[in-house]
Simulated assay, not measured.
Amino acid sequence: MQGKALRALGLMSGTSVDGVDVALIETGGEGVASFGPSLTVAYDDEVRRLIRGVFGAEQASAETAAAERAVTEAHAAAVRLWADRYAIPLASIDVVGFHGQTISHRPERRFTWQIGDGASLARTLGVRVVNDLRSADVAAGGQGAPLVPIYHAALVRTLPRPLAVLNIGGVANVTWVGEGDSLLAFDTGPGNGPIDDWCARRAGQRFDRNGSLAAAGKIDRTRLERFSEHRYFSQKPPKSLDRGDFTDSWAEGLSVVDGAATLTRATARAIALAARRFPHQVTQWIVCGGGARNPTLVQAIAAETRSEVVVASDLGWDGDALEAQAFAYLAVRSLRGLPLTFPGTTGAPRPMTGGRLHVP
């Protein structure tokens, strides 16, 4: 039975390294009683540089320690800014769910690393913090990702099934929700990561704003078909990716706009290939994450999947805050000893809880 609802603050920083999402919900760990305000606070360029400099690291070093300090301080600053803006005292928060920043994810070697010092954050904020939410799953042989599916299931309780919730960050992941909350979840392939990298290298901008570069370009169909043969797409789920597993290098030689168009269509193609793994076809796709703000990408997903595609905001969801809300939800589930991951979402051997609690 669901316990008393707690005020939980979720913090998320994805593989796109944009910044920190902060979001409040009230939940007992099953349904969601209410949604509070949210805020996104961009990383400054120095923090972004420190994080990018340790992508792929698997051993502690002076560089990973500096990046972890910067990440933890940026999260503390984001929480304070959120509390000031909405005049919400931190003493009224029961728990903070702190995802940290993934710098390396190699579940096939039972290794995943999210930098971020939970104990330091708890001391700084004076609030209980739950972090390290992936490690237990990975240690048991699961993929450790995606973690958000159980929250997706809580959000779609009143919608017709089966449906798919698609989260597009640096990597894209999908949650298929069937009758009776049956779940299947996995990373579909590249999300915004290769598109962002292409824009940074070739256009001097952090991302393709409104998909305008892609909209102006022509898709290289030959390269797209070759991309579709990537071995990842033939693997059965559960499966997950590291931010660096798909890059923009295969678009090299194309113009700026044609490369953007081709990479954007590739993200959509990977999503359509993922749908072949669903137990049943879905009635609709709900798109959230940064990719939901790219209309060219959303149109490409509709074309590739030949399905109805809506963005999370069409349903009244705060698509930008959804992952942060999910980590608030997972923190409460962790406190209550409820499972965070399942055989159908990460390939874990059994439903598993996780997370590490830090008390200020």
Results as ranks from 00 to 15, higher is better:
Phe278Pro: 06
Ala312Ile: 05
Glu179Leu: 13
Ala303Asn: 07
Ala172Lys: 14
Leu357Ala: 03
Thr267Gln: 02
Ala274Met: 01
Trp113Pro: 06
Ala292Asp: 14
Tyr86Asn: 04
Leu11Thr: 05
Ser228Gln: 11
Gly14Gln: 13
Thr72Cys: 14
Thr264Ser: 11
Arg269His: 07
Gln235Glu: 13
Ala326Tyr: 04
Ala261Gln: 07
Arg161Tyr: 03
Ala275Phe: 12
Ala274His: 05
Gly3His: 12
Ala33Gln: 15
Phe35Trp: 10
Gly100Met: 09
Val138Ile: 03
Gly290Trp: 14
Asn192Asp: 01
Pro295Ala: 09
Ala251Leu: 10
Ala87Pro: 03
Glu229Asn: 09
Ile88Ala: 01
Gly259Trp: 10
Glu179His: 12
Asn192Trp: 01
Arg265Ile: 01
Ala312Trp: 09
Gly191Tyr: 06
Ala292Val: 02
Trp198Met: 11
Gly10Met: 09
Phe186His: 03
Thr124Ala: 08
Arg336Gly: 10
Gly116Thr: 14
Ala216Lys: 15
Gly354Thr: 01
Glu323His: 07
Phe233Thr: 00
Gly36Arg: 08
Glu63Asp: 14
Ala5Met: 12
Thr267Tyr: 02
Ser38Trp: 12
Leu9Gln: 07
Leu254Lys: 06
Pro107Asp: 06
Val20Gln: 12
Arg231Ser: 15
Arg85Cys: 02
Arg333Glu: 13
Ala77Glu: 12
Trp113Gln: 05
Ala321Glu: 01
Phe55Val: 11
Leu338Tyr: 15
Leu81Val: 14
Leu184Arg: 04
Leu330Glu: 01
Gly100Tyr: 01
Trp317Pro: 02
Arg134Pro: 02
Trp113Arg: 03
Ala119Tyr: 13
Leu241Cys: 00
Ile150Lys: 01
Ala312Arg: 00
Val177Trp: 04
Ala76Asp: 11
Leu121Glu: 02
Gln205Pro: 00
Ile286Ser: 05
Ala321Asn: 10
Ala65Gly: 01
Gly31Phe: 07
Ser34Gly: 04
Gly56Ala: 05
Gly217Phe: 14
Val22Lys: 04
Leu147Ala: 02
Val130Gly: 02
Asp45Gly: 00
His152Ser: 03
Arg128Asp: 15
Ala275Tyr: 08
Glu68Gly: 06
Thr247Val: 03
Cys199Phe: 15
Tyr151Gly: 02
Ala153Glu: 11
Thr27Tyr: 06
Pro160Tyr: 15
Gly354Ala: 03
Asp314His: 06
Cys199Leu: 14
Cys199Tyr: 15
Glu58Phe: 11
Ser182Met: 08
Asp18Tyr: 03
Asp181Ile: 00
Arg202Asn: 08
Ala251Gln: 11
Arg269Gln: 10
Ala203Leu: 10
Arg134Leu: 02
Gln281Arg: 07
Arg209Thr: 08
Val311Gln: 11
Ile88Val: 14
Pro149Arg: 09
Val332Tyr: 00
Gln143Gly: 00
Cys288Ala: 12
Ser334Ala: 15
Leu254His: 10
Val311Asn: 07
Ala312Val: 04
Ile103Asn: 05
Val311Gly: 03
Thr27Asp: 08
Thr124Ile: 00
Val71Pro: 00
Pro37Lys: 06
Ala328His: 09
Ala272His: 05
Lys4Asn: 13
Leu254Ser: 09
Glu308Val: 15
Arg157Ala: 12
His230Ser: 10
Thr40Lys: 12
Glu30Phe: 15
Leu241Val: 04
His230Leu: 11
Asp208Cys: 09
Met1Val: 13
Arg106Ile: 04
Arg277Trp: 14
Ile25Trp: 03
Val257Ile: 03
Arg52Asp: 06
Leu322His: 04
Ala140Met: 04
Gln2Ala: 13
